[in-house]
């Protein structure tokens, strides 16, 4: 079965549990944090995916991580269930789908704004207002920084990308200068 399909099912179940418990926001935040730890820590991925590591050890590692994050029992149990069912590799996808489902439930669009250098909060507020004006929906902005953009801003909102980076302009210039054949 596809990883995305499995992750979507887990995310849907977690959404319903979070709504039922009234802790959906916290659940989304904790899963997003855990997914970030998964993405950034090679040691964590190796420990949880390696078949040579004992099952109990994996549970202990994840338990310790949840304790340090102050995760709720629902989050803790959900992550342990992923380990028990040997599905821990879908954790980032579960976090992503859970956040998308939660945003959809709240009627919120999430915009991922990437800049080459950090900008002021006032700029992000104006950008959020502009995006809400464009889409007609409430927009939540996720800030990211990517120096390879050289300069400018790239916004990803839904399936659209609004690219105002200098890197993209240089690429366009190169394509225009290069002969077609």
């Amino acid at each position: 079965m596809s990883v995305q399909i499995v992750a979507r099912r887990y995310a849907q179940a977690l959404l319903e549990l979070g709504v039922e418990a009234g802790t959906l926001e916290m659940l989304v935040e904790q899963f997003t944090t855990l997914a970030g730890a998964w993405d950034t820590s090679h040691d964590l991925r190796n420990a949880l995916e390696n078949p040579l590591v004992a099952h109990e050890a994996k549970r202990a590692v994840m338990d310790e991580l949840c304790t340090q994050l102050g995760a709720s029992p629902l989050t803790r149990n959900a992550v342990k269930m992923l380990i028990d069912r040997r599905r821990i590799q879908v954790l980032p996808y579960v976090a992503q789908y859970l956040r998308e489902l939660a945003d959809k439930r709240r009627g919120v669009l999430r915009a991922e704004v990437t800049t080459a250098a950090p900008l002021s909060d006032a700029y992000y507020a104006r950008l959020q207002a502009q995006l809400e004006k464009m889409t007609g929906q409430k927009v939540v902005v996720d800030r990211r920084t990517d120096p390879t953009l050289v300069a400018g801003v790239v916004t990803r909102i839904g399936d659209r990308i609004l690219d105002g980076s200098l890197r993209t302009r240089l690429t366009s210039l190169r394509d225009a200068l290069l002969p077609t054949n």
Binding site: T115, L119, Y123, R126, L127, Q130, L131, M134, A151, G152, V153, R156, D159, R160, I161, L162, D163, G164, L166, T168
Partner: peptide, 21 residues
């Protein structure tokens, strides 16, 4: 450049910097 980007978003035609994933 960020201000220019914001100004471009405010313009009615901004297809030049929009693309689908």
């Amino acid at each position: 450049l960020a201000e220019d980007y914001l100004a471009d978003l405010a313009r009615p035609g901004m297809q030049s910097m929009t693309k689908s994933v």
